[in-house]
Computed example of a mutant assay.
Amino acid sequence: MNKIILNDNFEFKQKAILLVPTFFFLYFSCVGLQTFLNHKIEELNVSFFIMLFVFSIIGISLLALTFSKVGFKVQDNELYRILSFLDLNFYSKKINPRDKKIFSILYKKAFQRNDYLSAGGADVSYNFAVQDFVLLSENHLEKESLIKLNSQKHSEELKLFLEEFGKLKFEIYSPNFQ
């Protein structure tokens, strides 16, 4: 099995938002664990153990999701988009190219405003380039987005990976309307 891990699943501000419920569940899991260690099992009821288990599972799952990374893998000559945490794949989605055995990279300029920083009236925004990997039909009229990357390094790595292991052909996007 060949795989490539590219970049984080969430941006910094999205991670900050996800960390609030994550710490909530993990905090109450730790409090429950301390309660369990400080009391006799006979003094605790079944609902305590259920809540401890549920809060622990939700907290660990949110932590893994918050710091997950996006990538691709090839298994049994099939291409999958994966989410992984600490080299453990916990979600994979099969990419079904059907008649789309061609991919291209579309370059776009984008800009993002940081509204949470501009409360004082200053316009805090930044420009960046986005490389959008798309699957194309033979005449390039139908396209399906695979992933959008901000890093040129990751873009080159993914291009080589899709050509070598994904058995996809790279072409420059030029639709044929005939």
Rank of each mutant, 00 (worst) to 15 (best):
3 K>P: 02
3 K>A: 04
4 I>K: 11
5 I>M: 01
6 L>Y: 03
6 L>T: 15
7 N>G: 11
9 N>S: 12
9 N>A: 10
10 F>M: 06
11 E>Q: 02
12 F>K: 09
13 K>P: 00
14 Q>N: 04
15 K>P: 03
15 K>G: 01
15 K>M: 09
17 I>G: 04
18 L>N: 04
19 L>Y: 02
20 V>E: 05
20 V>Y: 14
21 P>T: 06
21 P>Y: 06
21 P>I: 03
22 T>F: 00
25 F>W: 04
26 L>P: 02
26 L>R: 01
26 L>N: 03
27 Y>L: 02
30 C>F: 05
31 V>N: 12
31 V>D: 13
32 G>K: 11
34 Q>A: 07
39 H>G: 00
40 K>G: 14
42 E>Y: 03
44 L>W: 09
45 N>M: 14
46 V>P: 02
46 V>H: 13
46 V>K: 08
46 V>M: 07
48 F>N: 00
50 I>A: 15
52 L>E: 03
53 F>R: 04
53 F>V: 11
54 V>G: 03
55 F>W: 08
55 F>P: 00
56 S>Y: 08
57 I>E: 01
58 I>K: 01
59 G>E: 06
59 G>D: 08
59 G>W: 00
59 G>I: 08
59 G>K: 05
61 S>Q: 11
64 A>Y: 11
65 L>V: 10
66 T>N: 13
69 K>Y: 08
75 Q>E: 09
76 D>V: 07
76 D>Q: 09
77 N>I: 01
78 E>H: 13
78 E>C: 06
81 R>Q: 07
82 I>N: 15
82 I>S: 06
82 I>W: 14
83 L>E: 10
84 S>P: 03
85 F>T: 11
89 N>L: 12
92 S>Y: 04
92 S>I: 00
93 K>V: 11
94 K>S: 01
94 K>D: 09
95 I>N: 05
97 P>H: 10
102 I>Y: 14
104 S>D: 12
105 I>F: 00
108 K>D: 14
108 K>F: 11
109 K>H: 08
111 F>K: 12
112 Q>K: 15
112 Q>V: 14
116 Y>W: 15
117 L>Y: 07
118 S>L: 07
118 S>P: 00
123 D>S: 09
124 V>W: 15
124 V>H: 10
128 F>H: 12
129 A>D: 14
130 V>R: 13
130 V>L: 09
131 Q>W: 07
131 Q>H: 08
131 Q>C: 11
134 V>L: 08
135 L>M: 00
135 L>N: 01
137 S>L: 12
138 E>P: 05
138 E>M: 12
138 E>R: 02
139 N>P: 06
139 N>K: 15
140 H>W: 12
143 K>R: 15
143 K>T: 01
144 E>Y: 01
145 S>V: 11
146 L>C: 06
146 L>M: 14
147 I>K: 07
148 K>S: 13
149 L>V: 00
150 N>S: 07
151 S>V: 01
152 Q>K: 07
154 H>G: 13
155 S>L: 08
156 E>Q: 12
156 E>C: 00
157 E>Y: 09
158 L>K: 05
163 E>S: 07
163 E>M: 10
163 E>H: 05
165 F>I: 02
168 L>F: 11
168 L>M: 12
169 K>M: 09
170 F>Y: 15
173 Y>I: 05
177 F>R: 13
178 Q>R: 14
178 Q>A: 08
178 Q>T: 06
178 Q>K: 15
